[in-house]
């Protein structure tokens, strides 16, 4: 656990040293702020003291930003050869993957933390459902975790960052909308399976304030699968 934390710290520092973190924070806050407060179905249109519109927007902005954050995590290490340094130190492949995952998750959590003023502002406008806000944030965090794991796996496939980015988006788009659309067209067992696979179903149910173990299991399974896939790619290089 200590080793994972050492790796996480290094990764976070490198996010902040390489402008990556600042660009992500500014872009995320800019986009979500613009659409939450100024344009489209914003907070004022809805006429309710709720953050639902922000959660709806963050649901999409995070979907596009996370692959940008994760694309280089392993691809860049493979391209520059620094992966060889890591893998010949007394740490396991799993610790490397876990460290990278945690660092990105923490960065997203920091980005979400910066949106707390939205919450405070809206709560002064009217009666806000605190439970729904907390579960909305929880939903965003779980979704981010799932996409970071997917992105990490995509980044482990090739040494090209662009491949990592596109592959993460490609896998992500299935969970994000395609399974949902397909589920609408299918019926019976297949429909149910597709519906279960669709990330939006689970996100919406959590964002509504219903924290069901079924949804938690869903998110944690995607994270586990993504991380194990990335670990497998790292181990495979040995042969």
């Amino acid at each position: 656990m200590r080793k994972i934390w050492i790796l996480t710290k290094r990764e976070l520092r490198s996010f902040f040293n390489s402008l990556m973190a600042y660009i992500l924070l500014v872009a995320f806050l800019g986009f979500s702020g613009f659409f939450t407060w100024i344009s489209g179905s914003d907070v004022f249109m809805v006429g309710q003291a709720s953050l639902q519109s922000f959660f709806g927007i963050a649901y999409w902005t995070l979907f596009f930003f996370i692959p940008g954050l994760t694309m280089g995590l392993l691809a860049e290490e493979t391209r520059s050869g620094t992966i060889e340094l890591l893998l010949t130190k007394p740490i396991t492949d799993w610790q490397i993957v876990a460290g990278k995952f945690l660092s990105s998750w923490i960065l997203i959590a920091i980005a979400l933390l910066f949106t707390l003023p939205y919450y405070i502002t809206v709560s002064t406008l009217g009666d806000i459902d605190h439970g729904a806000v907390i579960s909305g944030y929880l939903g965003l965090l779980l979704m981010s975790g799932a996409y970071i794991a997917v992105g990490l796996f995509a980044s482990s496939i090739s040494k090209n960052q662009i491949v990592g980015f596109l592959l993460a988006l490609l896998i992500g788009i299935f969970f994000h909308i395609l399974f949902g659309i397909l589920a609408g067209n299918a019926s019976g067992i297949i429909g149910n399976i597709l519906n279960y696979l669709s990330l939006s179903t689970h996100f919406e149910s959590i964002a509504r304030g219903v924290i069901d173990s079924k949804d938690l299991i869903y998110f944690f399974s995607i994270m586990a699968l993504g991380l194990l896939g990335a670990e497998y790619s790292l181990t495979r290089r040995k042969f």
Partner: peptide, 26 residues
Amino acid sequence: YLPEQNPLYPEMPVIDYLKFVAEIQG
């Protein structure tokens, strides 16, 4: 181990990098 091509993290200051390796080595 000093690998061929000597890969390093370019964005890290020397001291930070050595500290990182020292910590990783336990």
